[in-house]
Design a binder for these strands. Structure first.
Lengths: 343, 343
DNA sequence: TTGAAAGCGCTAACAT
DNA sequence: ATGTTAGCGCTTTCAA
């Protein structure tokens, strides 16, 4: 007795036989090449009758191209989720499917995913540039798979790049505080191994310099994207002889550490101490007072990445790496106000 | 002059030639079958020299199996992100890569992704059961691709299921309010087309019934997962002659509508009106008072899904569909307290 | 243990 | 417009 099991999936040959045409004709039909009416219909019928389902692996093997784009992210925070959303849409309209892989910063998982995507010959790999991926990215580039960095950079790689103007808008944000009369402005920075953290801090310094305010090293704390570190930072800031009247945090997580500290120390954001943060998240809108934020152009970023990717997919030519810089938006809320006393 | 362009990627044949062995031997090496020392080393060298990168499409075509698992989600809210994280880890340890696709509830995108994954012969498709996917899921099952529903169900499909005990823990949550002395307990429900919404409401009703409290239909509002609808609901509730002293919301979005209403109407959560919500999110922890929540077992859910999937991948036998029910955890915070006056 | 060779399902010449 | 056919890169018999 022969084992029955799952019947083998119908192939293009089965369809051709059933429709009494050649496999070539079926293939053409599948690829949208015009087929005369009678055969067209016969093929159509055969496909539904056999529940034919085209084998992507076979197609990919022949054509040497897939319609997959890979996205690697450490996690799904609000910013990544938004970029992801607009990128998904943008690619879908071009017939590309975005495959997302979350690696949680684990080099092991990351390496595995990278190899996987390389093996699968995806059309492009999109990822924040972090040093952990350096080697694999180089391998991808060497194999001719375009890579797009966004949000964060690792220099000296032949990849496309899409970033927010971190420095410029950090500068503008701090300038806003200065314009309100603040002179004692502190910065809680992120992980200085990352470009975003460095650029945002640089913007802070530039703004102070422009206004002729001497940068006080004690006013710069932090150095990681972790909340506990920021908590230590804000504590230290507020215990200075002259505590700052305004604070600029390099991202939303750090801002929460500040908010938390203020809540437990009966300090009212905005009234007592001003706060502006990079990133704009739902919570900043929810809170009262609302938190003034430097919103990243997440949707535009997704769109821009999509365009860069499609440029590679369509373009026969190997173009030079491009770098796109996008503008942020400063959203004024009630957490930034003129300082209470003095000037 | 021949166009140079990107050199064709090295294949197994190239490796075999370079190592002076047969392709079969290289293939065996690649698949971890023991090769005698001299050849083993030669192959190893050839691979690195040629930067050989195995072609996944060709492999998949021959073996008729991939090491991909697909996850379809409407979006990356905290709950999905957590499930996703633990599922990714669980699968990675088994050599499977999780491919995530976000469809934002758009049936078009969803259908496209489903077809894509079917074409690519993924080992399994994991998705919340929603009616929009009915047809495609049926197609997958018919083609022998295992499907795992989680979080939400669509009945009458031969798929595996992993859910939280929504009804049971909704009941316990409401019971907690009753035990504190509340008698006027309202429910803001979700989209009743979804099982989660129905079950959570059923749990609410059961708890009242158990305590001999007559269910007042005016105390049940909502009917969608959208915040604006919930805002209308809470408004209506609080304008009743006898407004509720406690509220149970079917998820965190609805809870925020309540919190917002309270804030703008000078009602203090916990002191004036109690609040318990399904789902536990970062914000509930952040707020003061903290919001009492019924936390879903997101990590366990990811693990459980992983096991179910691997059962299919490894198991030669076609097993009967399984349904796993997981326990939630009720996390008491300051938003639930005994009612102010009366009993 | 290894080599030789037959395909997996599909596309893209090349004919007609 | 359609049929015929040669592979794409790989795994896996079958022999040796």
């Amino acid at each position: 007795m022969k084992p029955v099991g799952r019947p083998r999936a119908a192939t293009i040959v089965d369809v051709a036989q059933r429709a009494s045409v050649s496999v070539g004709t079926v293939s053409r039909y599948l690829n949208g090449i015009v087929i005369r009416q009678p055969k067209r219909e016969a093929i159509d019928k055969a496909i539904t009758a056999l529940r034919y389902n085209r084998n992507a692996a076979a197609k990919a093997m022949r054509t040497e191209r897939t319609n997959m784009v890979a996205l690697l992210v450490p996690g799904y925070d609000e910013f990544f989720a938004e970029v992801l959303a607009s990128l998904t849409r943008s690619l879908a309209s071009e017939g590309q499917v975005l495959l997302t892989h979350k690696h949680e910063g684990d080099p092991q998982t990351l390496a595995m995913a990278m190899e996987f995507f390389q093996n699968h010959r995806v059309n492009a790999v999109v990822t924040p540039g972090v040093s952990e991926v350096r080697r694999q990215v180089a391998a991808l580039v060497e194999h001719g798979i375009p890579v797009v960095f966004f949000n964060n950079d690792v220099p000296d790689l032949a990849v496309d790049r899409v970033f927010a103007r971190n420095r410029e808008f950090a500068r503008q944000g701090v300038r806003h505080l200065i314009d309100m009369g603040h002179r004692h402005i502190a910065h809680i920075g992120g992980d200085m191994r990352e470009m975003t953290a460095r650029e945002r801090q640089a913007g802070y310094c530039e703004a102070l310099a422009e206004a002729g305010i001497a940068a006080d090293p004690r006013y710069i704390v932090g150095g990681s994207w972790n909340r506990p570190d920021a908590a230590i930072g804000i504590e230290r800031l507020m215990q200075l002889e002259v505590p700052p009247t305004a604070i600029f945090t390099a991202n939303y997580v750090l801002a929460f550490a500040v908010i938390d500290y203020f809540r437990t120390h009966d300090i009212t954001v905005g009234r007592d101490v001003s706060l502006i943060s990079f990133d704009d998240v739902e919570l900043f809108r929810q809170m009262s007072p609302g938190i003034t934020a430097i919103a990243q152009p997440s949707a535009e970023m997704g769109l821009a990445i999509g365009e860069v990717v499609m440029g590679h997919v369509n373009g026969a030519q190997r173009t030079l790496p491009r770098t796109l810089m996008l503008d942020c938006t400063i959203i004024l809320r009630q957490s930034t106000r003129p300082p209470k006393a003095s000037g």
